[in-house]
Amino acid sequence: MKKDEMNEQIAQIDKAMRLGNEGLSDDQKAYFCDQRPERIDPYHGILERFANWARAESLWILGFGTGCGAIELRPLMTSRYDMYRYGIQPRPTPRQAGVFVIGGYASVKTMKRIVRSYEQMQGPKFVLGLGSCTINGGMYWDSYNTINRLDHYIPVDIYIAGCMPRPEALLAGFNRLKEMIKAGQCDGMNSYAENFDWYKKNQKQIIKHWNMPDYNW
């Protein structure tokens, strides 16, 4: 009797822990994982510092040009700027990327993809807001279809202001990011998990046709 009750309680808690995935029809829910993201504690001491050093020295950018600023990413790969020497290289899939460079303005349509891609990256993951648009909407500040503040939707580690910022600025931004990582200051992943409901509420406010799970594993 008691065991049954316990089991029932566990089941209830488990259900409460899980995501609602209201955007999906019932027959689609089985296709997606409905776990909530969790906070994962860092390692301790030297181990974490070593790990952070490795993370900082091997920054893999997600090659997803979300806006016009993405044009500034390309020169970084060329012989003139050569980001490779800083251990930075592009990766074609969010699964393998650690840095998400939001290339300028993010329209609502793109925002959906940004959220999805961000959630699919493996932590710890870093977001670099590129250009004024990601800070306050920039020249699109009163647009009906563009967000004004990126960090209402996903945690941002560093912004690079300008419209657009030059590749040099970008490199500077990356180097700053590296320092921050080494210093252990970049924990957007855990803050996203901790404030998941808030982020999700904001996201759902602008994205009307939410046809994906609440957290894209």
């Binding site: 994962i40 860092p42 390692y43 070593f50 790990a51 490795a54 993370r55 020295e57 091997s58 893999w60 251990g87 650690g98 493996q122 932590g123 710890p124 992943m189």
Partner: peptide, 12 residues
Amino acid sequence: IDIIKNNVLRTG
């Protein structure tokens, strides 16, 4: 460095 980084990622 890349291999180390990949191995010390927190999630998978």
